[in-house]
Design a protein around this nucleic acid. Structure first.
Lengths: 209, 209
DNA sequence: ATTAAATTAAACTAAAATCGTAAATAATTA
DNA sequence: TAATTATTTACGATTTTAGTTTAATTTAAT
């Protein structure tokens, strides 16, 4: 008689995972509910048992996704490793998720629907606070220059993958290794001459690219 | 009074290029004619001036694309460089185009429409003959083991990019450099110990990845 | 085996999207 | 200016999609 929570339901999970990969790849408007149901081997009736409509589905996907991200972040934050290694792992994480979803998906999330937009913004807010606190603490410990606003570091971190895929930058530095090296060097050490570097290979180690 | 050939028309070209990138990315059924027109800044009426319908558009895209491929191939074939270097360039070309289109596009090309299917098959036939001749000649010159059917080499070449992106293989050899190295070594030298290798970096040089 | 719940396929309606065209209007070119 | 060409707007016809209903089937628990 115990009514199962939807998170533990197989059909629900099938729908979430199939929908996620489809929507992340093609964006929201290109994918139909029927297609999701077919690919997930779930009938349309069952879909409407768990979701009111497509927007509702998207919100639940985002909830899952954000929670996942927060969990990953907290795990890294609380690891017992040097600060620089944590930074590496955070960047790696960002690059990993950035490859998952298409630009189109985020654009649609922000553009068309007002509910989704609000939800997405409040979700990013929540995670942003977490990360900001992390940076502020690191700054107080002397890991960063104190004159840099932590929000600016977050901005930079979030734009690394964008820079890596920027067509203009690609023509300037075609080799991805070199490109990454240069971006990281600028972010961490600025234009000053410096003997420290962040290795692309170290960042990518163990990653299935 | 000279009626301009459509190939030289700006609007026509805009339609072809925008349609190509959209269709290659999302497949045929996900993209609407109106979307193409909007993105290309061409009115729908103008679209129907140049194309009967979506299938007609796809065929003309394919024609362009195949011609382009044949030209590239012939250019490489007739270059005055060692055979191995030609091989490298051909593989590079294959990898480049494979990143352009999605699996979905080719699937739809083969699956839904009978006209497109026929057209695609005859087009690949035509190019396959060219490449086969190239390999046969190389074989007669002693560049390959004579007991290998050239068709099998073509098959292998065409599957390099697939292997590079194969999830199973990725877990076995996660580093793309290593993965590519191993694939190339197998294809060119088999399982025999051999001091020759094909360098990933050499293959990728000058490519904007 | 019996019962209750979950799932499904199929049919269906209403709304929305898309196609393709025809006319009126603006822009180019001769 | 006149003739040709490109674009906008509007529109009807068709197709697709969303969401619901019903009846049949599967699944799981008792």
């Amino acid at each position: 008689m115990t009514t199962e929570a939807p998170q533990d339901n197989k059909k629900y999970q099938d729908l979430i995972t199939t929908a996620r990969s489809l929507l992340f790849k093609h964006g929201i408007k290109r994918v139909t509910i029927e297609e999701i149901c077919e690919k997930a081997n779930v009938s349309k009736v069952t879909f409407y048992k768990y979701f009111h409509n497509k927007d509702d589905l998207v919100m639940k996907i985002m909830e899952d996704w954000v929670d996942e991200g927060v969990r990953e972040f907290l795990a890294i934050r609380d690891e017992n490793i040097p600060f620089m290694d944590k930074m590496l792992k955070l960047i790696r994480m960002k690059l990993a998720t950035a490859q998952e979803y298409s630009h189109e998906f985020i654009d649609e999330l922000m553009g068309t629907n007002e509910n989704l937009k609000q939800f997405y913004q409040s979700a990013t807010m929540k995670t942003l606070e977490l990360v900001t606190d992390f940076f502020k603490e690191a700054q107080e410990e002397g890991q960063f220059r104190k004159t840099v606003p932590p929000e600016f570091y977050i901005y930079l971190i979030e734009h690394i993958s964008e820079m890596m895929n920027d067509e203009r930058l690609k023509t300037i530095i075609s080799d991805p290794h070199d490109r990454f090296q240069e971006i990281m060097n600028i972010i961490f050490f600025g234009f000053n001459e410096c003997d420290k570097t962040i290795e692309y290979d170290k960042l990518m180690e163990g990653r299935v690219s």
